[in-house]
């Protein structure tokens, strides 16, 4: 029996094996292309800092796999270790929040359906806002919670904002990257998945069974 990853799988097991075979390749491509893939996030971050959301965010610089948040916030002045014009900066590892992309790509290649380039483009575009949110919130969280009360006071965030940042950070870190990838893949591969499970996927109500024509005419 011939096995090829370039044909659609017919069983869940075969699909699973293909995903495992594609994952190292997509992960490698993701690492190599990270600066390019993260570029739209960098543009959005620039825009946010330019608009002034939040006001103390001066700029966000893109590194190979990271984003450096530059703020106008001052570190505690009593500490001699800082220069007078020192300001708070923090680095966020963007890879932690974008690894859903290689997972989505591996799932897409494993399914091997038509229009894969289009599907990958859609997936990339849909995942971007979630990745942006995760990187942005992580930057805020690091500044709000990791630099002590002096810096936190300058941010002028209330309890609600801090709670929102903490919750969004948790969900962005622990769940969002893989879950959004799976959800987008499921939506873009609905008919493929239906083929596996042999049912009209996610149908909430059964269609009314067709009544014989004779009975309808007589009624």
């Amino acid at each position: 029996m011939r096995f090829s990853v370039f044909t659609p799988p017919t069983t869940i097991g075969a699909f699973f094996v293909r995903v495992l075979l594609w994952l190292p390749i997509t992960f490698l491509l993701w690492v190599i292309c990270a600066p390019l893939l993260h570029f739209p996030i960098a543009l959005a971050m620039h825009a946010l800092s330019w608009i002034g959301i939040p006001q103390w965010l001066l700029d966000v610089e893109q590194g190979a796999q990271t984003f450096n948040f530059i703020t106008s916030l001052k570190p505690p002045s009593g500490d001699d270790a800082f220069r007078a014009n020192a300001r708070v900066e923090t680095v966020v590892n963007a890879m932690l929040y974008t690894f859903g992309l290689p997972l989505f790509a591996a799932l897409t290649f494993a399914a091997w359906q038509t229009h894969m380039v289009r599907t990958l483009s859609i997936g990339y575009a849909v995942l971007l806002p979630f990745q942006l949110l995760a990187v942005y919130v992580t930057g805020l969280k690091q500044i709000a919670f990791n630099f002590g009360p002096v810096v936190a006071q300058q941010m002028e965030f209330g309890v609600v904002q801090n709670t929102l940042i903490a919750y969004t950070y948790q969900i962005s870190t622990l769940m969002m990257p893989p879950v959004t990838a799976l959800a987008v893949w499921l939506v873009t591969h609905r008919s493929f998945v239906e083929g596996f499970v042999r049912r009209d996927l996610l149908r909430t109500k059964s269609k009314p069974s067709s009544t014989p024509a004779a009975s309808r005419t007589s009624a």
């Binding site: 869940i12 992960f27 290689p102 591996a106 990257p177 799976l182």
Partner: peptide, 16 residues
């Protein structure tokens, strides 16, 4: 990265 992806893949397969 790797195990995070694999665990969620496991969830997907179990669900399917």
């Amino acid at each position: 990265y790797v195990w995070q992806a694999l665990i969620m893949l496991d969830v997907l397969i179990v669900w399917l």
